[in-house]
Amino acid sequence: MSPRQTPSQTVGPFFAYGLAPEQYGYRFTSIADHAVASPATEGERVRIIGQVFDGEGTPVPDALLEFWQANAHGRYNHPADDRKDNLLDPEFKGFGRIGTGTSADASFHIDTVKPGAVDGRQAPHINVVVLMRGLLTHAFTRLYFSDEETLNAADPILAQVPEDRRATLIAKQDETLAGNVYRFDIHMQGERETVFFDI
């Protein structure tokens, strides 16, 4: 008989020193942090900022967010993506991780490069995992960019999302802030509940 999957359990409130130790000031190295791109990474610099809100609209101060993305050429740094026409960038792994517990307003930010379109049809996007106390199974979502209207309109995954909920997946460029900043808030529940995927 084939083995069955090990069930998920919540990350709990005390993940910081295990999963994001340097961000929270613990004496242990981090494997990843908010700096998804290094100074040597190719591509257009972007900063993503946001907050995670619970069903009462309160910012969640103990969430952990993970980000997985293709590089500026649209290629993932993973053996399953072996397309020769999209260049790998040795300076880019494409993974970031940040907790919401080190800023006064429970916000997060990552510094990265804008991913390229992935397979000729998918608009630039970042894959997101949301973990927190109170989530027994992590939630998957995606972040798209507000200034990619044409590509977003043709994106086959967005097309599978009910039209009135697509906006929850679009990070909005905030031109009032210095740098190239996009805001991506995640609403766990309520009218503006973010679309989460069953993948």
Binding site: K93, L135, A139, I157, F196, D198
Partner: peptide, 26 residues
């Protein structure tokens, strides 16, 4: 804690693309 934090709208099932079939390598 799940009551105010767990998503309540139906999850959207999507086809798998390279985005789902790749992942960070450590």
């Amino acid at each position: 804690s799940t009551v105010l934090r767990g998503p309540t709208k139906p999850l959207v099932a999507i086809d798998h693309t390279l985005s789902e079939l790749t992942g960070p390598v450590y």
